[in-house]
């Protein structure tokens, strides 16, 4: 967290060259495929695809930063999901503390993969799309500029806050406050003293950032122009159609009974 807090990685990969709109269309397709299927083998397709795309786009560092969250979501989901589906098929895990049927195991694995696919897919998008491109892309979809700006800024501030938490944590540690030690409750309580400084540093920045914006002529009511606005080219159309095909194909195959457990 000591390096740049932004999740955007400035590279010149094919994914980076696409417009935000076509990447959003692709993301919708990937999310749909991950959502409509239950079987882990089917859900693995969007998960592995997203992960490979993330690594190729230079997002390995981002994945490492959020790996503990992805890991926790995956493991907890895998443990909890079996109780959310009826048992079925032969018993494949029979231990004194847990007894799982084949259906429960596959269902839990598929659901955990789905969660991971969402996180990794979202990471691919923010790794390959700068804040300005996100705002311009959402604006081109017809959303009000101020709303797009707020969303883009929130996405940029989110990792900044994680960075600020790390800084405050180090400052508190230098004063003898130990964070993240002991049991779960003790760990949670140790984070409380970080809350107010992190919160206030974020709020304090509102004044300076607002002044900086207004000094540069920020006005939400006028029509916006964007520096380096990209045209929606052939590659964008191809990716958008691919995203659409993923949606239609995924829903269609699911309705036909494929990919279920």
């Amino acid at each position: 967290m000591s390096s740049s807090p932004s999740l955007y990685v400035d590279r010149a990969t094919p994914l980076h060259r696409l417009t935000a709109r076509s990447k959003l269309a692709l993301l919708v397709g990937v999310f749909t495929v991950a959502y409509v299927f239950d079987h882990p083998l089917w859900v693995a397709v969007p998960l592995v695809g997203s992960f490979v795309a993330l690594v190729l786009a230079g997002g390995w560092r981002n994945f490492r930063r959020l790996a503990y969250i992805v890991g926790a979501l995956f493991v907890v989901g895998f443990v909890v999901w079996p109780s959310f589906t009826p048992a079925g098929g032969p018993v494949v895990v029979d231990l004194p503390v847990v007894r799982l049927t084949r259906r429960e195991l596959l269902f839990a694995l598929g659901r955990s993969e789905r969660i991971a696919a969402f996180v990794v897919g979202g990471l691919v998008f923010v790794t390959t799309t700068s804040n300005e491109e996100i705002v311009a892309g959402l604006r081109s979809l017809g959303l009000p500029y101020a709303f797009c700006f707020a969303l883009g800024t929130a996405l940029r501030l989110f990792p900044t806050l994680l960075g600020a938490t790390s800084t405050v944590r180090q400052a508190q540690a230098a004063r003898g406050h130990e964070v993240g030690r002991g049991g779960p409750i003790e760990r949670l309580r140790s984070y409380v003293p970080l809350l107010v400084p992190v919160l206030m540093s974020a709020v304090r920045d509102v004044q300076t950032q607002s002044m900086a914006l207004e000094a540069r002529g920020f006005d939400t009511r006028g029509e916006r122009s964007f520096y380096d606005r990209r045209t929606f080219g052939g590659a964008d159309w191809a990716v958008t159609l691919f995203g659409l095909a993923l949606v239609v194909g995924g829903v269609g195959l699911s309705v036909l009974g494929y990919g279920n457990v």
Partner: peptide, 16 residues
Amino acid sequence: WRDTRMIMLVAVTAAV
């Protein structure tokens, strides 16, 4: 949405 500081507060609230 007309005020820059309110827009920044939307972003800060969302991020936090």
